[in-house]
Each structure stands twice: as structure tokens, then as C-alpha cells.
Amino acid sequence: MRAWQRLAWTALSLLAFLALWQFLSFLVASRTVPSPLLVLDALIAAAEGGRLFYHISATLGRVGAAFFIALLLGSAVGILLGRAPKLDRLFNSWLVLFLNLPALVVIILCYVWFGLTEAAAVTAVAINKIPNVAVIMREGALALDRDLAEMARVYRFGAWKTLRHVVLPQLVPFFAAAARSGLALVWKIVLVVELLGRSSGVGFELYMAFQLFDVATILAYAFAFILVIQLIELALLQPWERAVNRWRR
């Protein structure tokens, strides 16, 4: 399929979605099911005062910080566990515990222990994501090629060269998977964190709109944020993945 054909199909599919939505809102005819046009109005209203931009950038800042910390620490933990079977046996049940700990519990505990601060908010989100990243990266570290490791040893690559040219390139697909699923998970948790204890961000705005039963604004923020996340995926993640996968046949 050519590019414009793919684009046309996407456009058609979105139009169908909008049409169905318009029809349903017409059918229900209630303020709680606003039509697409009303949502667009709400979006423009939010954008005009600069509120939309302010809150989205506050949320994005938290998403970025938590995402970065989670990927860094999660990768370190995962690679370590993948390389050291004894550590893995010792800490595997911790990992399972944290994997199944509800996000809400972590958020509440962080706020209780560290206060309603920015650091507590970001920490809570990062803790939610770290075990996830660690599990994925552990799989990657377990799958490392022994033949190439031996080659690096014989030719005396040393620790740094081995890490950079032998180990990390093998972990790229796992890292990309962790980043992809991470982005989707992190921004959803950030909204909850904001709803519970921050006075800025999309989560906070959603809470305010909820108090007023202002569904149009809620949907406006949701769509604006989906758009931003899609942009990050298209403009950052995908080009990066293409660049590191150039060598594949």
C-alpha cells in the first residue's frame, strides 16, 4: 500500500469514528455526551487562555522525568538480574511483588511518606514503571549472545567497548519495547498522580472539569494529550528505532 492510500484509510477511519460519535450525541441529547464540535469549542477555549499549554507541559515534564528515571533504573536492575542468576533468584519475588502492587497504593504511600511534592509525584510514577522495565530488560540480558561475548574477550575489547558495541546493541529491541509500553503506561499514571495531589497538569484539570461535570473539557484534554503522545512516538521513538535498526536485512 502506498503512503497516501494508508493516509486515506486512516482519515476515513477517523471520520467514521467522528460520525458515529456525532450520531450518538444526537441520539442521547445530553450535556454529558457532547458532540465533536462542542469538544472542539472546549479545546479552543482551553487553548486561548494558555491553560491548555500550561497544564500539558506540566504533565509532559512529569512524564519525561518519570519515564527517564524508570528506564534508567529499570534497565540497570534488569540487566543486573539477567547477568547474575543468584541475584535474580534472590530478588525475583520482590519484582513480582512490585509488578502486582496497584499503582494507586504506590501513589498514596509516596504522598503520605514524602508529602504532596513534585518529587513524590515523579517518584511514585517511576516506581510503578521500574519493575516493568526491569522484567523486559532482564529477558534481553538473558538472551545476550555468548559467541559475541567470547569474541570480545579474545580480542580484548575491555568493559566499555564491550558494553557499547556488543551488549547494548543487542538490548535495543528490548529497550524499544520497554520505552513504547512505558510511555503509554507512564502518562496514564501521571494523570492519577496529578488528580490526587498536584495543582497543575492535565490530571488536575480533568478533576476540576469533573467537579463541574464539564465532559466537553475532559474530552478536549484527553484528545489533546493523545495527540501529543502520538507526536512523541512519531517524531522521536520511531526515527530512533529506524536509525538503530539500519543494519537489519
Partner: peptide
């Protein structure tokens, strides 16, 4: 010591020169 293995064991993500 140099070692030519049974399979070439080149890093697939680096060019020959690299």
C-alpha cells in the same frame, strides 16, 4: 592471540570497517 571462530562472529550492527 587472534581467534578465527567457526562462524565469523562479526557484530551485525557494525560495518566491516567498524
Amino acid at each position: 592471540i587472534a581467534y578465527a571462530f567457526q562462524s565469523p562472529r562479526l557484530l551485525p550492527w557494525r560495518t566491516l570497517l567498524e
